[in-house]
Design a binder for these strands. Structure first.
Ligand SMILES: [Mn+2]
Ligand SMILES: [Mn+2]
Ligand SMILES: [Zn+2]
Ligand SMILES: [Zn+2]
Lengths: 139, 139
DNA sequence: AATCATTTTGCAACAAAGTTGCATTATTTC
DNA sequence: GAAATAATGCAACTTTGTTGCAAAATGATT
């Protein structure tokens, strides 16, 4: 059973506001990762740009969403799995896929990032893997 | 024997200008990846901001440098190995490391990106792996 | 349910990053 | 060296993100 936006906000001890509920609902029903601009287009007339920035910031800190690095320099956000919310720090260990055709970025939640052996002297804390190519829908 | 900036520009059929030579020299002597701002700080008084943008763009297209995706939304550039220049398309298959301490990003040229098995229906064209943590110098 | 303390929001103003058009200057070709 | 071609600097602009502050909304308390 999936949690509602209200429940997620409550369990993250964020006060429940129209803006946060709306933005979280957008994430909950989105099939792909969202950039700030995507969210702005979906609720520009309702909420200020600054509010969206601050909301995303709050969600990030609470472990509700995570960012996805990209070559095109646009920060994209996607929902975390529940563990991030509870534990307070991110451990999204899956591969991200960016489609060259449709431009969409998605979380491959089932695809774990393979381990890699670094040169001596380097200590890894976090690993990101972004694969680009053609996605399932565009093939 | 390392190529000079002039030789690299010539073999990429780019006309040789003071700006391009200077910026390429900065890359040739840099131990880490450079953001636009890093370059600007090193030659602000000499070249216009726009010229730096256009130079980086030209270097990218010619396969002289490649971009490194990052979470902090800052595009960083580093020299490609020679193959990219000759073949005309990028195939920088190494891991990138971003140090949380010193903030520097470096190419781990000797560390190949491990292969990963994607779900059915996805076709990979390019793979990026960015490891963050503590680098050799900061340990 | 009304009150009060605490957060959140919208607005304005700003800073930084990146792009485009165009006249001027530099580089290459002949 | 002259002509053709390409690169540069400047101005103007867009997009992205940040900050301070007053007004509005939320959550806790009575
Ligand atoms: Mn993800
Ligand atoms: Mn590299
Ligand atoms: Zn696609
Ligand atoms: Zn370091």
């Amino acid at each position: 059973m999936k949690k509602t936006s209200g429940e997620i906000l409550k369990s993250s001890s964020l006060s429940i506001t129209d803006g946060r509920k709306k933005i979280l609902d957008i994430f909950l029903s989105a099939p792909n990762a969202l950039a700030h601009q995507d969210i702005e287009l979906k609720c520009k007339e309702k909420f200020d740009r600054v509010t969206i920035y601050r909301t995303l910031q709050a969600f990030l800190e609470k472990g509700i969403i995570h960012t996805i690095p990209s070559s095109d320099n646009i920060t994209r956000y996607a929902l975390c799995n529940d563990d991030c919310i509870d534990s307070g720090h991110h451990h999204d260990n899956h591969v991200h896929f960016s489609c060259d055709e449709c431009g969409k970025t998605i979380c491959l939640d089932e695809t774990a990032i393979p381990s890699v052996r670094l040169p001596n002297g380097f200590r890894a804390h976090q690993i990101n893997m972004i694969v680009s190519g053609v996605c399932k829908s565009c093939l």
